[in-house]
């Protein structure tokens, strides 16, 4: 019997130029170009993936790009509810911009706002692209980029004798 995750992944693969991988029965990932992500998202929504669990940005300084990961799953379809798909794409440092998925999944609202303030990725089409957690006077730097170093107090095990 074919697993539900394979059906979805094969469907995405047949329609788009995407790298898909099923890690297990319940986890899978789709990597697409950022230009195609809205279309992929719409397809996934048609398949029953109705909400975004998290929007994550991961900084890769060597490659000068940031990976954006949307974890999507379903509430309404009990089969797909077991599955969490990671929808991945990249934006570059030079152009840290991509189309917002707010119009597809309204639940991306919080995550996209947080990714914007923490990594400086601008989501076009998001209705409320402002900072969320950071204070008003926190300007110019993006805390979750690897270039932002925080001062750490040494733990006693790390100290030289």
């Amino acid at each position: 019997m074919q697993r539900p995750i394979d059906n979805v992944l094969n469907l995405v693969k047949s329609k788009f130029n995407a790298q898909v991988k099923a890690e297990s029965d319940a986890r899978g990932q789709i990597e697409v170009d950022k230009k195609a992500i809205v279309e992929v998202a719409k397809l996934l929504k048609e398949q029953g993936f109705d909400h975004v669990k998290s929007v994550t940005g991961i900084d890769f300084p060597e490659q000068e790009k940031i990976q954006i990961v949307y974890h999507v799953s379903s509430y309404s379809n009990p089969e797909l509810a077991k599955v969490i798909l990671a929808l991945k794409t990249y934006v570059t440092y030079k152009e840290p911009k991509m189309q917002s998925l707010y119009e597809v999944w309204e639940s991306a609202w919080t995550g996209e706002r947080e990714t914007y303030e923490m990594l400086g990725v601008y989501f076009e089409g998001h209705p409320d692209m402002r900072r969320l957690f950071l204070p008003e006077d926190f300007e110019g730097v993006y805390p979750l980029r690897k270039s932002y170093k925080i001062k750490l107090e040494g733990l006693f095990v790390d100290k030289q004798a």
């Binding site: 969320l132 950071l134 805390p143 979750l144 690897k146 750490l152």
Partner: peptide, 15 residues
């Protein structure tokens, strides 16, 4: 306006 008790768990997590 949230963020008054932000502890930066995700950033500290990388360190």
């Amino acid at each position: 306006d949230v963020g008054y008790v932000h502890r930066a768990v995700e950033k500290l997590g990388e360190n």
